[in-house]
């Protein structure tokens, strides 16, 4: 039963990572760049929703929508101002620019909201009005799953399903897949490549806002650096599942979350990151393109 509760907390954490990793993987698939600023968009999402309910008195869910809207615009802005001029540049140049954007977001947040951590109120209170945990009780109360966890897991599955439908059935989704296969050919077919890339960033950033709200609901200290470590872990998750693959990001996120929770519970709290990263290294040794990634053999 203890094992089951660790497993559920792992899946829950993994769901958040999966949502972040989906954003990473979509951007990577289409723009072939590591968007290091993605983790900081999560943080911005957290702060905007915090402002929404703490200062403007909005309902938590409305604040979430507000955060999604702001992050979407932010994503499009970042892409247009910092990444679009570098379409033809080397990937390293884009990477350093992304790092610059990441510093910019962190330090702007530091200036606007200060260094003192904000105490984030979860989307669904973890403790009910009567003081009892706000959770679903199973097996005579031996196992309790908070409603927040249930919402998180459900959100992850719904987002995953929507994205799969979106990329396989809608016109824009198909355009995205075409661009990630071959940009020049996509352009010849009349696809507006630049607009498609902007839309990908918009979707990725909206997902980051959702992830930010969920992440802060579990880990209620909100700081300008809140996003960076989850960002790196989610990036690991995206690579783990095979970067560029949507089901891969989902699977990778869940596995990284579960491994982290298990490592914390059974091995060592201090070495949780090491365990996660060791598993990643071992997997990459045997499947160099990640779990679900396509291995493309080189042609001479």
């Amino acid at each position: 039963m203890v094992f089951l509760s660790y497993l559920i907390s792992g899946i829950c954490l993994g769901s958040v990572y999966a949502i972040i990793a989906l954003g990473y993987t979509m951007v990577y698939g289409i723009a072939k760049m590591l968007n290091f600023a993605h983790g900081d968009v999560i943080m911005v999402g957290g702060y905007i929703s915090f402002c929404g309910f703490a200062y403007m008195g909005l309902n938590g869910w409305v604040a979430l929508l507000l955060a999604m809207a702001v992050c979407t615009i932010l994503g499009i802005l970042i892409e247009g101002l910092a990444y679009k001029p570098l379409r033809q540049a080397t990937s390293l140049a884009v990477l350093i620019t992304a790092i610059g954007v990441s510093y910019l977001l962190q330090n702007s947040a530091l200036l606007i909201w200060g260094a003192t951590p904000k105490n984030y109120t979860p989307l669904i209170p973890l403790v009910g009005p009567d003081g009892a945990p706000n959770a679903l009780r199973l097996f005579d109360g031996q196992l309790s799953i908070s409603y927040m966890s249930i919402v998180t897991m459900a959100a992850c599955v719904i987002i995953m399903a929507l994205l799969t439908w979106f990329t396989s059935s809608t016109k824009l989704g198909k355009a995205m897949r075409a661009c990630s296969e071959n940009k020049a050919a996509a352009q010849l077919m009349g696809i507006n490549v630049n607009r498609t890339i902007s839309m990908t960033f918009a979707i990725g950033s909206a997902l980051a806002a959702i992830a930010g709200v969920l992440l802060c609901s579990f880990n209620p200290t909100l700081m300008p650096t809140t996003g960076s470590m989850p960002g790196i872990r989610a990036f690991t998750a995206a690579v783990f599942g095979g970067i560029g693959s949507i089901p891969g990001a989902f699977l990778g996120g869940l596995l990284i979350g579960i491994i982290e929770a298990m490592a914390k519970a059974y091995i060592s709290t201090q070495l949780a990151n090491s365990v996660v990263f060791s598993v990643l290294i071992i997997v990459l040794l045997f499947r160099p393109a990640g779990l679900l990634g396509k291995y493309v053999p080189e042609k001479v």
Binding site: A82, P85, L86, A89, T90, A93, I96, T97, I99, G100, V101, Y103, L104, Q106, N107, S108, L110, L111
Partner: peptide, 16 residues
């Protein structure tokens, strides 16, 4: 650090 970040981005944009 904000200025540092802006300088970094501008240098990368202008050189690339």
């Amino acid at each position: 650090m904000l200025i540092y970040a802006v300088v970094l981005i501008i240098v990368m944009l202008t050189t690339n």
